[in-house]
Design a protein around this nucleic acid. Structure first.
Lengths: 337, 337
DNA sequence: TTGAAAGCGCTACCAG
DNA sequence: CTGGTAGCGCTTTCAA
């Protein structure tokens, strides 16, 4: 392996000091244009790439942002990550991924974890509740954090109004004339990121109450938020003698599962059963699913921008709590009972 | 911000030299058990976390692995990333993400890109073809790489037999008695990662040929591999007077789009149209989609393990090219014509 | 088995 | 506007 050119090599070739090279390459002020040109040419000639480790050590900033998320495989997370990555790339930062899926608390705070936290300039926490030890680490390292969805202490939070989403979906059904409405997506006990499920369920319940409709406990189905689980739950629900004329689902994935279950039970959607979801998943449009759309990329961008603000890399001061608007998208899965 | 404890602090508290602390903390040989215990205790007491940047600078290894992938939002990538991350976490390495979605060649090889490459100890390239400049960089930096799916020069490759997958799916239809078979998923021109689409299409075509069936060009649909695009294409296809009795899809996402299109066209699946996909997407089971399952997590794990081998962190020598087996999962979307 | 010391490649401060 | 230089916190010889 040929040894890589260092800043000194560039300095020598350009005939200046390393300090000047450092400044020129980082576009700092107070560098004569001609000097800068000479440095750039030398760097170019040597195909010089600065060492991030050295720069990090010397400056104290690694230009690495950690992203903590559970269930990366879920649609929402993939979308938001992509948006976040783009923003940071444009600002010369990289993304360090930490997928919490299936992690037990003990497994989470390992040595690796500590180094992960130590390695980054900031943390974006997506829909997870950090544990006490993790939170303590954040404070000890004085890490700026931005929360998406699930809040983290007093850190700026980006998200949507989950309660409102569910209320919007539910109200749509009520307005259509439904009164026998079920809900799929109650969090199972010990769910690691239960805020969204809880808020959505609450939105459903309170909207029903506000419409003087009663919530039938046996029509509120628990689910792990997977298609399969929703399908199973709905299949059971729809086999009862008393069945609802419509169902609100905590997510589109579950809604698709419910639609499949309905079809397999010989029911037509929306004639026999109206189904409404939340998210506006890629597949929602194709399946004609009525849903409440949330802007995923917007949330990711906003989170990234907010982090840049916290880092002082941009002049925005993040809001303490920002909810993006959501829209009811009416398609073909809902109709009057 | 309270200043972080450094290795010297630990050394002082433990009453040894920094060299000894360094050895003890890394479990190197030749450290007296008692000394090690003292060091560990000191580190514990100070809540010491070593600086990755400093260690990286001094050792030349950053313990960071870069993952390059297009279309991170697609099902396959999310699953594989998750598996990769787990393996590396267990080996004290972190994952640096680089999503190539929507990136133009010029945008890709930016300064940021160079630093990204410079920052990592190795690269896992998932289903993308690296450009000349990127490849050159890999060589200049002497980076070990593992390819998943799309091959990269002589780097070890992990994947599946795409040609075989499509052949398996097609043969299933042929065996069922179909002769009017369409295909959805031909790569559009300039697709950045066209190998899989091409191989699968070839598997389809050659299997038909081997069965003395002809491929009707108008029944081979191009698609960007999204549900929506497949839905649109299928809708058009099924509106023709001459329509196939079955269709092979390059992915389950497209297959789901085709199923939706069939239903919306008033066709029953599988009575009027058989549909088979490839992948075994989360939603395939619920929708009763017959498909060819590929082991996603296995591929991710294998890729990560292979990289560890290349890095000399494990004693495995990665195979030059390893294909994981796939299985035909027969569900309810296929039947005799 | 342990310590001393020379870097690793860069940033940032202080002079000039 | 530019150069000199002292670290940043660790790893890694080389001696002891």
């Amino acid at each position: 392996m040929t040894t890589q050119p260092t800043i000194s090599d560039v300095a020598r070739v350009a005939g200046v000091s390393v300090a000047t090279v450092s400044r020129a390459l980082r576009d700092l002020d107070k560098v004569h244009p001609e000097t800068r040109a000479r440095v750039l040419a030398a760097a170019q000639e040597l195909s010089y790439i600065g060492s991030p480790d050295a720069a990090g050590l010397a400056s104290g900033r690694s230009r690495l942002i950690g992203i903590i998320t559970p269930f990366m495989s879920r649609w929402f997370f993939a979308g938001i990550m992509s948006a976040i990555e783009k923003v940071f790339r444009d600002h010369n930062h990289h993304i360090l991924l930490m997928d919490l899926e299936e992690k037990s608390p003990e497994a989470r705070l390992s040595l690796t974890q500590g180094r992960l936290f130590k390695r980054v300039d900031g943390l974006i926490v997506i829909n997870v509740e950090l544990e006490a030890a993790e939170s303590e680490l954040v404070h000890r390292l004085d890490l700026p954090v931005i929360a998406v969805g699930y809040p983290f202490e007093t850190a700026p939070r980006i998200g949507i109004d989950d309660h409102g989403c569910a209320a919007l979906a539910t109200r749509h059904l009520v307005n259509l004339g439904h009164s026998a409405i079920a809900y799929v997506g109650k969090a199972r006990a010990h769910n690691p990121h239960g805020r969204t499920p809880n808020e959505r369920l609450r939105g459903f319940e309170e909207t029903l109450a506000a419409s003087s409709l009663t919530v039938r406990p046996e029509w509120v189905l628990e689910s792990d938020w997977s298609v399969g689980d929703a399908y199973a739950g709905a299949t059971h629900l729809l086999a009862q003698s008393q069945r609802p004329t419509s169902v609100v689902c905590g997510s589109d994935e579950m809604a698709l599962g419910v639609m499949a279950a309905a079809r397999d039970a010989g029911l037509r959607v929306p004639e026999d059963l109206s189904v409404v979801g939340i998210d506006d998943h890629d597949m929602a449009a194709v399946f004609g699913l009525t849903t409440v759309r949330q802007p995923v990329a917007d949330q990711g961008r906003a989170a990234a921008l907010a982090m840049l603000g916290l880092l002082g890399l941009t002049d925005v001061t993040p809001e303490a709590d920002h909810n993006f608007p959501v829209d009811l998208i009416i398609r073909r899965s809902t109709a009057a009972p």
